[in-house]
Design a protein around this nucleic acid. Structure first.
Length: 785
DNA sequence: GCAATGGTTTCGACT
DNA sequence: AAACCATTGC
């Protein structure tokens, strides 16, 4: 508890901040508009800042913190600042740093709910029946555990999948419910009336394992504070000022957590936007924001409505669409920016064509000098990414997937971490179970069963049981030898921790355990990537003082700093895009069923639709200058091609701000009969009123520019002639002859190993071992032999 | 214990 | 269509 004692080092943040304070008004307050300034300067009492998209929300938060420090109201460690993502926390640290000087260690209580919860729990672990070195379970550990719990209840894990139970527990935990508090009616929700029983059993297992899951990081805090008023008071005293970002996304547990802390001083400032609440499925309660004034009487409410990000048309579209929602607090975004370019809406025949259109447009803009890093493609579901990625790869367009499979959830990272956990915490059964046979060493279920029996009857950790069992005759010679080798390894590595830098220990562990070998032997493309990831993992360890600190970080952090390198277009889900902005934003897949998502509609009806609409609003407001929407008439869903209808959201756009584009006809399906009869894109599926409006508009444009155009067989408005044929897009420059020759073995980052079948300029035809013949640019493969 | 096979499910977003 | 799981045969 060292940082309980305030220390004033020379050059500390507060001193620098004070130095920055000028007579007659602080420099950092300049340039704030009156509302922003009010939000910053109303330091005492509860404040709710309703900040629309692009209204300078983060600026207000960071300036407010700087202001608190600069005016001497608080020292950096008196302030609790909560964000939702680690990324947001990082960015805020950085921006505060810019305002008041380097802040790395200055704001110990700036972080996500979960990281702060973990920090608090570590200090008082024993009060909630944990030891301070408890492990934080990831999703996969959690599922494994739940499977065991389900099996122990003699339930059929097919009928009662662990995933479903995980969801149920998650929901309860989000609502702040301990097993005892689960309402009668819901208790029997799983496994034929045994929901709560399983919840209890799971919590017991967690306690024995000295572990907790994400939800527990908050729930245990609640219990800690309720049962130990002195501890609560300690924190209430400590956090003189509290700030919460993205308040619309807080769930009940987080709300209770905040309320306990804020009760005493009531210096709570929550910043949020009810129109950007997109995590209802995760238990977020928009009600929290709607009820703020009720919960904190006398709260000052500040509305930020001046948008500094987007052009007039973009803002008009965003405002228009969100206005279809009921139950809003009601904000109207304004801009003083010019109208700018109209939004475009383009229909494609199928998702492949849609991906192609997006790719073309990005290339066209790039050719005109726009930076790729200022362009982003935002999709509703990650399943849409594949096709777009394929297209990018084909075009040789550098791109980055944001928030993809999370770094720490990748198998190789989880494995490596399990090894490290075994070294650092020899009682970590889950970690041991994970790696006992990874790489394969002939220690399968049978062996594990024996170890489990021993461990359970002797009440000792698995690793200890393993060591004992190697001394007996219980195992056959081969597994016994393997197990002994492994255990000797762990003893060696454990000893190594003293005196050797932990990243070095990690490297040695991965090496000597045969783990890196395992991937090296696998000659697939993603094995390469996995080895890279492992290297990155080891490298990133250097930034932490010790192994414990590193493991803590990793179990909480969602995204590693992805390579920022180079000028790349971004591809991500709409959810991942919240808080980001780009000059040009592409929004493909605006179709009924996909967006709004059918599932959302089925599950939550009108509320679901409204959440989807907020998601649309988030997507639209990510753009500064250009917004391009797409839909396609056919899409593959669960492997089946389905005809699709443009999203109702397209019809909710203001006509005056939208321009309807027509996709150039494509010949790509002409050969050998396509999967469908080629129909005009103005077929029956475009029967919505908005679309007919758009169609009429388009027809007039068409006549103007093409002098009547050519009618097609059904007498509908003409399609423009073939402007592009697919092959053209593949090669941008064939100037330099490729250095690859037919028959060479190559490795492609996506398709894996293959053999070059033909060379044409810088285009290669490659027979890939796994994915067959493909045409790729030579810069995308490397020679392997 | 392991690889191969076949049958089933899946694509909703995240700490 | 691909990923995932459980069972089967070696």
């Amino acid at each position: 508890m060292t940082d309980l004692t305030p220390v004033h080092r020379p050059g500390s943040i507060s001193q620098r901040a004070r130095a920055a304070l000028q007579p007659g008004g602080a420099s950092y307050l300049e340039g704030l508009n009156p509302e922003q300034r009010q939000a910053v300067e109303t330091t005492e009492g509860p404040v709710l800042v309703l900040a629309g998209a692009g209204t300078g929300k983060t600026r207000v938060l960071t300036t407010r913190i700087a202001h608190l420090i600069a005016t001497g109201r608080a020292r950096p460690f008196d302030i609790l600042a909560v964000t939702f993502t680690n990324k947001a926390a990082r960015e805020m640290k950085e921006r505060i740093g810019h305002l008041v000087g380097p802040s790395a260690e200055g704001m110990p209580w700036l972080g996500t709910f979960h990281s702060i919860g973990a920090k608090i729990l570590r200090r008082h672990a024993e009060l909630v029946n944990l030891r301070s070195d408890f492990t934080i379970l990831g999703m996969d550990d959690q599922l494994r555990l739940l499977k065991q719990v389900i099996a122990a209840e003699n339930l059929d894990d097919k009928r009662w999948p662990a995933r479903q139970l995980a969801g149920l527990l998650d929901d309860w935990k989000n609502r702040g419910l301990t097993p005892e508090q689960v309402p009668q009616g819901e208790a029997g929700a799983f496994g034929g009336g045994r929901g709560v029983k399983l919840y209890k059993a799971y919590q017991d297992r967690l306690a024995t394992l000295n572990a907790c899951d994400f939800g527990d990081l908050l729930l245990h805090c609640l219990r800690l504070w309720r049962e130990n008023p002195d501890v609560l008071q300690n924190y209430q005293d400590r956090f003189r000022y509290m700030l919460v970002d993205e308040y619309q996304d807080t769930n009940v547990a987080q709300y209770l957590w905040l309320r306990l802390l804020a009760q005493a001083r009531k210096n709570l400032c929550c910043v949020g936007d009810d129109d950007q609440s997109i995590y209802g499925w995760r238990g977020a309660e928009v009600d929290n924001i709607l009820r703020f004034e009720h919960d904190f009487p006398g709260a000052v409410v500040v509305r930020l409505e001046r948008n500094y990000r987007s052009t007039g048309h973009i803002l008009a579209a965003a405002s228009h669409i969100i206005a279809y929602n009921e139950g809003r607090l009601g904000k109207t975004l304004r801009t003083e920016d010019e109208p700018g370019e109209k939004l475009t809406v383009t229909g494609a025949w199928d998702s492949e064509e849609e991906a192609r259109l997006v790719g073309e447009e990005i290339e066209a803009l790039h050719a005109k000098g726009h930076k790729l890093s200022e362009m982003a493609v935002l999709v509703r579901t990650s399943a849409q990414m594949r096709e777009i990625e394929d297209r990018f790869v084909q075009l040789g367009l550098p791109y980055r997937v944001v928030g993809g499979p999370r770094f720490y959830e990748r198998a190789e990272i989880r494995d490596a971490l399990a090894y490290l956990r075994c070294v650092a915490q020899p009682a970590d059964d889950l970690a041991f179970e994970r790696i006992i046979n990874t790489p394969k060493r002939g220690l399968g279920d049978a062996t594990l069963q024996i170890l489990h029996n021993h461990a359970r009857s002797a009440r000792i950790p698995l690793m200890q049981a393993a060591r004992l069992v190697t001394e007996t005759e219980e195992l056959k010679a081969k597994p016994r030898g393997a197990l002994r080798d492994l255990m000797r390894g762990f003893e060696r590595w454990h000893r190594m921790m003293e005196g050797t830098p932990h990243s070095e220990v990690a490297r040695v562990v991965l090496e000597e355990s045969g783990y890196t070998d395992m991937w090296q032997k696998e000659r697939t493309a993603d094995a390469q990537g996995r080895l890279e990831n492992l290297k990155e993992l080891v490298r990133s360890m250097e930034e932490f003082p010790d192994l414990g600190a590193f493991l803590e970080h990793v179990s909480l952090v969602m995204d590693a700093n992805e390579g920022e390198g180079g000028d790349r277009a971004s591809l991500m889900t709409l959810h991942a895009a919240k808080g980001l902005e780009f000059d040009t934003v592409f929004l493909p897949g605006w179709e009924e069923g996909l967006f709004p998502s059918q599932r959302s509609l089925d599950e939550s009806g009108r509320a679901g639709l409204e959440e989807e609409r907020r998601l649309a609003h988030v997507g639209l407001t990510r753009a500064r200058k250009r917004l391009k929407l797409y839909f396609s008439s056919n899409r593959r869903i669960h492997g089946l091609w389905q005809a699709t209808v443009p999203s109702r959201f397209i019809d909710e756009l203001p006509e005056a701000s939208v321009e309807v584009m027509e996709a150039p006809a494509s010949f790509s399906h002409g050969m050998g009969g396509s999967r469908f009869d080629r129909v005009t894109p103005f077929g029956s599926s475009y029967a919505t009123p908005g679309w007919q409006r758009a169609q009429a508009h388009q027809a007039s444009v068409e006549r103007g520019s093409f002098g009547g155009g050519r009618g097609n067989e059904r007498g509908r408005p003409a399609q423009r002639g073939p402007l592009t044929i697919e092959g053209e897009l593949v090669a941008k420059s064939t100037s330099s002859e490729s250095s690859f020759t037919t028959g060479a073995r190559v490795l492609h980052s996506k398709f894996g190993p293959g053999t070059v079948a033909a060379v044409d300029g810088n285009k290669l035809t490659v027979d890939f071992d796994k994915s067959g013949r493909k045409m790729v640019l030579d810069s995308f493969v490397e020679r392997t032999s």
